[in-house]
Computed example of a mutant assay.
Amino acid sequence: MTDTTLRYITMLRMIPRYPRTITANRLRDGLHDHGFEVDLRTIQRDLGRLSAWFPLIADEDTRPYGWAYDAEATSNMIPALDLPAALTLELARAYLTPVLPQRALRHLKPHFEEAQQTLERQHHPLGKWPDQVRVINRGLMTQRPAVDGAVLEIVSEALLRERQCELRYQARHWDRPETIRVHPYGLILRDPNIYLVCRIDGREGVRQLVLHRASDATLREAPAEEREDFDLDNYIQSGAMGQLLSDQPIRLELRCDRPVLSHIEESPLGDDQVIEPVSADQFHVIVTVSDTQDLRWWLMAQAPHLDIRAPAWLREAVVEKLNAAVQRQAGI
């Protein structure tokens, strides 16, 4: 393979998709970092040649011109998609389409289209996959709050580049929107919401911001605060995403009817869950869990099928809620 061919491939990998662009000067610097010593005029000629074969466009409204791949172009570059990769992208499309805002999905559209073209080109039965797969989220099918695509894009960039960003944010308990500066630690998609886990300047502790409550975002070049002791998985497993009602874990003991067994076995309530048979119709569960709103909801929903043996205060709290519900409905 000639040096010119290698240079072409390197350049093509450096060019972003529109609306992001890159100038010939920046391409020259990038090529220099890869060991290619070429002048600006050579790069300009290369771009002209490559644009005849690849979907490259020049933004003539800027000086110097910014180069990019056409926003609607497919990504049919080397190496070509094989069937497993195409199927994976089709699965991703089925799952992500109901979760992500449309602006975020537009960035993935060329990859999804290439996957579909690959399946159709090879006359593979998987080409019918989009018509045969649906994603239904568990629970009440409420409409997802609208997330500003520009906000999600800037927050994602701040997270990847480890930079601070400013958000115009309206928390539920605030009288009016505020402009806050945040240090992003991670994004969590917990249907139907997208959460930014972060620290807010001037405030203690790790916070969760629901992105649909942010109306504007600005990326800052200041580096985000490093948190070496923060792990996103540990944060989730601590119960923080379940609306903690108390800081102390609960040693939960339940006596459950047989219909609950399959659910408990397939989706354990905790890592240390122990199941002991009591009779042909009942079993005993002992597990350590976080005291979250989700746990309370689950216990109330399963109340006809289980007894809360311990702790007593949790049983009393659930009974109080259920009695209040019965009295309300009986009073209609």
Rank of each mutant, 00 (worst) to 15 (best):
D3R: 13
T5Y: 03
Y8S: 01
Y8H: 15
R13P: 01
R13W: 07
M14C: 12
P16D: 02
P16N: 09
P19E: 07
R26F: 00
L27N: 05
L31W: 01
G35L: 05
F36M: 04
E37D: 10
R41A: 02
R45T: 02
R45E: 02
G48L: 10
S51Q: 13
W53M: 12
W53T: 12
L56Q: 12
R63A: 10
P64H: 08
D70W: 03
D70N: 11
T74N: 03
N76D: 15
P79W: 11
L81A: 12
L83W: 01
P84M: 04
P84N: 04
L87N: 01
R93Y: 11
A94K: 11
A94E: 06
L100K: 02
P101G: 06
R103S: 14
H107N: 06
P110Q: 07
H111E: 10
H111F: 03
A115P: 01
L119E: 00
E120D: 07
H124R: 01
V133I: 15
I136M: 05
G139I: 09
T142D: 12
Q143F: 09
P145D: 14
A146E: 15
E153W: 12
L160F: 12
R161Y: 02
R161Q: 14
E162C: 09
E166Q: 14
E166K: 13
Q170P: 01
R172S: 12
H173D: 11
D175Y: 04
D175F: 03
R176K: 14
E178D: 09
T179G: 08
I180A: 04
V182M: 06
V182F: 02
H183T: 05
I188N: 06
N193T: 09
I194C: 11
I194G: 09
Y195G: 08
R203N: 00
L211N: 04
L211Y: 08
T218Q: 13
R227Y: 05
E228Y: 04
D229R: 11
D231K: 00
L232M: 15
L244H: 04
Q248Y: 13
Q248L: 11
P249A: 06
C256E: 01
D257L: 10
I264P: 03
I264C: 11
E265L: 15
S267N: 10
V278Q: 03
S279G: 10
F283M: 02
I286L: 15
D291T: 00
T292C: 06
D294E: 15
L295D: 02
W298N: 03
W298C: 00
L299S: 01
A303F: 05
H305E: 10
L306M: 10
A310G: 04
P311C: 03
L314H: 02
V318Q: 07
E320S: 10
K321Y: 02
N323A: 03
N323K: 14
A325W: 13
Q329E: 11
G331E: 10
I332A: 04
